[in-house]
């Protein structure tokens, strides 16, 4: 499993969407496209905005569908971060057209 540690790049408050884009484009999507299992490691991240989480993972859900959550894992998330990830994964899956 490939682990992407966030805190070195995001700090304790993950809100920088430029950082989210870089993580998505340079690390997350290439790993998922290779069929790898990926863990996003939120150790040390106290808070994240919905915009950050969306910019980080929505493309993965769009491209691979809800099934990507079988191999995209979220490690060491506190409760608010878990809930924000839950909101983003839920509205993305609600909005996916059949077959997406």
């Amino acid at each position: 499993m490939r682990t992407i540690r966030l805190v070195e790049k995001t700090g304790a408050f993950a809100e920088n969407k430029d950082v989210a884009r870089a993580l998505r484009v340079d690390e997350l999507m290439p790993a998922l496209e290779r069929g790898e299992e990926v863990a996003l490691d939120f150790t040390g991240v106290d808070a994240a905005t919905q915009s950050f989480v969306h910019a980080l993972i929505s493309e993965a859900l769009r491209r691979f569908g809800g099934g990507v959550l079988d191999r995209l894992l979220f490690k060491s998330c506190n409760e608010p971060v878990r809930k924000i990830i839950g909101i983003v994964t839920e509205y993305m899956q609600e909005g996916l057209a059949p077959g997406e």
């Binding site: 919905q50 915009s51 969306h54 509205y91």
Partner: peptide
């Protein structure tokens, strides 16, 4: 107009 927004924007802020 796509549901779920773009890869960078959801329209939720």
């Amino acid at each position: 107009r796509r549901e779920g927004g773009t890869e960078q924007n959801a329209g939720a802020g």
